[in-house]
Simulated assay, not measured.
Amino acid sequence: MSNNNQETITSQIYHVQVIETDASIRCGLKPFTIYRLIIGSNQLQLKADHNNKDDDRLNVLFEWPYKYVRRYGYTSNSISFEAGSKCQTGEGLFIFHYQQY
């Protein structure tokens, strides 16, 4: 049996808040807003953290394909990466804070 929805199986979802950087400000991301950061098999995806029953794709704010991410890292409570100029957001540093439960 083949699975055409491989992205769903391999994705990790984090509820995050933005730590302000020049790039996050330029993209209009708000520091006290909760977002969903989805770490998929091909890209990072940022979604608004509310349920849209009509179509979940409408909640997608930004996507960062891995081939255009320059650097990345994480700690016990944050994920950061540097987007390249070919990313939808343009180049810049993005930092997201999350809490482990």
Score class of each variant (00 low, 15 high):
Tyr14Gln: 01
Arg26Met: 01
Asp54Glu: 15
Asp49Glu: 14
Asn42Glu: 15
Asn52Met: 01
Ser2His: 11
Ser11Ala: 15
Asp49Tyr: 13
Asp49Ser: 15
Val16Gln: 02
Ile13Glu: 11
Thr10Glu: 11
Ser24Gln: 05
Ile39Ala: 04
Gln43Thr: 07
Asn52Ala: 01
Gln17Glu: 11
Phe62Thr: 12
Asp49Thr: 03
Tyr14Ile: 07
Tyr66Thr: 09
Ile34Cys: 10
Thr8Pro: 00
Leu29Met: 14
Ala48Gln: 08
Ala23Leu: 07
Leu37Asn: 03
Asn5Gln: 12
Ala23Ser: 13
Thr10Leu: 13
Trp64Lys: 04
Pro31Asn: 12
His50Gln: 11
His15Gly: 04
Glu63Lys: 15
Asn51Ala: 11
Leu44Asp: 05
Thr8Cys: 09
Cys27Ser: 11
His15Thr: 13
Gly40Leu: 04
Asp22Cys: 04
Thr33Val: 08
Glu20Gln: 05
Asp55Gly: 00
Thr10Cys: 07
Arg57Ile: 06
Lys53Asn: 00
Val18Ser: 07
Phe62Gln: 06
Tyr14Ala: 03
Asn51Val: 15
Val60Ser: 12
Asp49Gly: 09
Thr21Gly: 04
Glu7Tyr: 12
His50Ile: 07
Gln12Pro: 01
Asn42Val: 13
Ser41Gln: 10
Gln45Gly: 08
Gln6Arg: 09
Gln12Thr: 13
Arg36Trp: 05
Ser2Tyr: 15
His50Trp: 07
Gln43Lys: 15
Lys47Ala: 04
Leu44Cys: 06
Tyr35Cys: 00
Trp64Gln: 08
Pro65Ile: 09
Leu58Ala: 08
Gln17Ile: 01
Leu44Val: 04
Ile39Trp: 07
Leu29Pro: 02
Leu46Pro: 03
Leu61Asp: 06
Glu20Ala: 00
Asn42His: 13
Phe62Gly: 09
Asn59Thr: 15
Asn4Thr: 14
Gly28Cys: 00
Thr8Glu: 11
Ala23Asn: 08
Ser24Arg: 01
Lys53Tyr: 00
Ser2Asp: 12
Ile13Phe: 10
Ser11Cys: 10
Ala48Glu: 15
Gln17Ser: 05
Gln6Tyr: 05
Ile34Arg: 11
Thr21Asp: 05
